[in-house]
């Protein structure tokens, strides 16, 4: 979030406050940004320290400091409110993410998932309707290969990391203090181990995310029945249903680019 966005959100939350009150509230934050700039901070850094505009608003409410005029219309716009809320939440979310290194691994998987579903949507809309059904099964297969590869890679990374750390840290007293590999400092070793561990974790999460999405989109009609209306067997003239189609090549690229 930058300064303009922060101030705009404040103006939004305090929209039912009189102009004079609003100006007084805003002036504190304008001054804060000015001082922060003089101290050499970027707008983003200052925003992060300030916290979310919604918290500011709620604190003013909590302190009983603002007098809101009755909303003129029933509700100006539920949608606008939702968007502001979401933007606010997203900003807060992004900031928390930045601080939490270990969570990154899990989120890498989610991001891969989101990217995949976005690509999927684009695909569904533009290209899928023209594809023969054979592509569907092929697509499913590629997904399976994709998540299996992720799992296998994650296992390999864990294994190699463990082996490396073991060899680098171990000496064998029975052989006169023989060390299999040249010794490195404990800190380097620690970071090496950590990097390997989280890389493996990221791969693992990416794999399970892909698998989950694959499951959600590719439940075969025969096994996934039990809904009231039975699914009619696909006839050749049926065009493939958008949500069931899959396109491997499009999916591979963005997912790989994220790693």
């Amino acid at each position: 979030m930058n300064r303009t966005e922060f101030m705009d959100l404040l103006r939004y939350y305090f929209r039912r406050v009189s102009d004079a009150e609003l100006q007084e509230i805003l002036s504190d934050y304008e001054a804060h940004f000015e001082e922060g700039k003089k101290a050499g901070l970027t707008e983003e850094e200052i925003c992060r320290e300030l916290g979310s505009p919604k918290d500011v608003y709620e604190m003013y409410l909590h302190e009983g400091m603002i007098h809101e005029e009755e909303p003129a219309a029933p509700q100006p716009s539920r949608r606008a409110e939702k968007i502001a809320d979401t933007a606010d939440r997203l900003a807060g979310h992004a900031e928390r993410l930045a601080g939490q290194a270990e969570k990154l691994a899990g989120d890498a998987g989610k991001i891969a998932g989101t990217t995949i579903s976005r690509a999927q949507d684009a695909w569904d809309r533009s290209i899928a309707p023209q594809l023969p059904e054979a592509a569907e099964t092929a697509g499913g297969l590629v997904w399976k290969v994709l998540f299996s590869a992720c799992y296998a890679a994650s296992f390999l990374v864990f294994l190699i990391t463990a082996l490396l750390v073991y060899l680098l840290s171990g000496t064998f007293p029975a052989f006169g203090g023989f060390s299999p590999l040249p010794g490195i400092s404990a800190a380097t070793l620690f970071f090496l181990g950590g990097t390997g561990f989280f890389a493996g974790l990221a791969l693992f999460f990416a794999g399970s995310e892909i698998r989950r999405m694959h499951r959600a989109r590719h439940t075969p009609p025969s096994s996934g029945a039990s809904t009231g209306a039975p699914v009619p067997p696909p006839s050749p003239e049926d065009s493939p249903k958008p949500q069931d189609t899959i396109q491997p090549a499009v999916l591979l690229l963005p997912a790989a680019g994220r790693k």
């Binding site: 804060h32 001082e35 300030l50 916290g51 979310s52 918290d55």
Partner: peptide, 22 residues
Amino acid sequence: GYELVTDISKYIEMSEGTIYPL
């Protein structure tokens, strides 16, 4: 304001913006 807020946040982690309402 800025001086007070940043001085406090050296010791206590919090949303600096919520000091102004106080």
